[in-house]
């Protein structure tokens, strides 16, 4: 256990250092978010206030989903340089510590992208709307979405790295796999903001699905990660 914690801390600290010294890595997904919000604003044009909440929620989550995908797909980029990833594989590292450190960094970076995206989208798209996504219940939904997406993001990233697959494959697999997450997040937020439902009501439907998805994929990815870094 002590060994696990030491390794987890070392891996996390290293990842934080690399991200800190290379702010482009979280800045560019955020800039991408801003660009998408801008494009959505152009595409929507003048919208009837009655339709605004629905469109606003959809556009926000779509933007977040796209930028998070970019951040996830790049999470192992620092490790590909100078064959660091292979060197790590020759070290006696606990695969769970390794996976958890990557998961933690993905969640931290994701929050750094997700929360500003919600804020920016509220500012630009929803400037006269009757509802606001900056609401504690919706923030919980958004964070749950991030937690569910993180695990599968790390695993797909590792898979792409180990298989030298083409870049385009990442979104091709990521988006269909995460359909339930996007649906849950959008529908939960809509029910909170438009229908005035609360979190406990949603737990038995959309939010429950989101949580089940998150727990299932977290466990599955934790187990599979070890398989992906083993010698072949």
């Amino acid at each position: 256990m002590k060994r696990f914690l030491t390794q987890y801390r070392a891996l996390l600290w290293q990842a934080l250092q690399v991200e800190w010294s290379n702010s482009e890595r979280w800045m560019s997904p955020l800039l991408f978010s801003t660009t998408m919000i801008l494009l959505f604003a152009f595409a929507f044009g003048k919208v009837d206030v009655a339709f605004l909440p629905q469109l606003y929620i959809a556009a926000t989550y779509l933007t977040a989903s796209f930028s998070l995908q970019i951040a996830f797909s790049r999470v192992l980029e620092p490790d590909t340089q100078d064959r660091v990833f292979d060197q790590l594989r020759t070290y006696p590292i606990s695969p769970s510590a390794w996976f958890l450190s990557k998961y933690t960094i993905v969640i931290l970076l994701g929050a750094l992208i997700l929360l500003p995206t919600l804020f920016l989208s509220n500012l630009f798209l929803n400037n006269e709307g009757p509802v606001s996504l900056l609401n504690s219940s919706v923030l919980i939904v958004a964070v749950l979405m991030l937690l569910s997406l993180g695990a599968i993001g790390v695993l797909l990233s590792t898979m792409m790295l180990r298989s030298n697959a083409k870049q385009i494959l990442y979104p091709l697999l990521y988006f269909p796999l995460t359909v339930p997450v996007l649906l849950s997040a959008v529908e939960s937020s809509r029910m909170i903001l438009v229908d005035g439902k609360d979190l406990s009501y949603l737990m038995s439907s959309w939010l429950g699905l989101l949580v089940i998805f998150g727990i299932m994929y977290f466990t599955l990815c934790l187990l599979l990660f070890g398989e992906l870094v083993k010698p072949e």
């Binding site: 290293q14 690399v18 060197q87």
Partner: peptide, 11 residues
Amino acid sequence: PAEANALFGKM
């Protein structure tokens, strides 16, 4: 390894 040093360039 031969053709790499496996060091983190940013650290």
